[in-house]
Amino acid sequence: MIQIEGLQKVFNGVTVLLDVNFEIQDGETTVIIGPSGVGKSVLLKHLCGLLKPDAGRVLVNGTDIVPLSERALSPIRKQFGFLFQGAALFDSMTVFDNVAFPLREERKFDEAEISQRVEEALVIVDLFDAKNKKPAELSGGMRKRAGLARACVARPKYILYDEPTTGLDPILADNINDLVLRLQDHFHATSVAVTHDMVSAYKIANRIAMLHEGRIYAVGTPQEIQTTTDPIVRQFITGGGSTQEAKHGAVSIH
């Protein structure tokens, strides 16, 4: 379980996260929604210690990771897989080597086992034929899929997705959503995704949380979020909408 308590982050005098309190339950897929620039990716990077908050705590399995040094964070980070917005594949390596990287860094598998697990992951994301290509030779969708394979190949306990469908056409985006579900089914990880793509959010989430003005504003199941009458949530999920229906729906508003 990941617990976030009173998280606060300020960049150059601009408060991005004001007071975030939230719990991510084991085994579920939580999607954090919110408009661009609201701090979703910033929040996600705090979950594995890539960013340090100005105040607050992040507890991973009960351990507060905020005061930990980079070196002390290393074993905790090995429990995470992270799909970056631009995939962040290593330019100098082939797709195979990129996906093999977390396994090689573990230094406990032989090359035959690494090869088998990498090929299994590449088959799941339908990239087996591109295993010898460099990231520069891949399309945006293929990069995301390679990033997905790299994020899950070491079978992490937690998988974090930063805008998994952004910049992809609807068919490719749906393909990625299916992959996220397939990986969830295959590896049973706890997943957290940030997105502003509601189609994706409804499809992959067990629970949706909306980040608004530096706080978690609303939390609910996809069904609850879809049917809420809260004006701020409705405005976001429908891309406009009325702000006069100021009634609280089934979602819990913080």
Binding site: E70, S74, F84, Q85, A88, F90, P102, A154
Partner: peptide
């Protein structure tokens, strides 16, 4: 520098590699 701005350094750190 390129690795930093394309989040490759963050990717390394996220995988527990310094």
């Amino acid at each position: 520098g390129t690795m930093k701005v394309t989040e490759q350094l963050d990717a390394l750190r996220a995988m527990g590699t310094s």
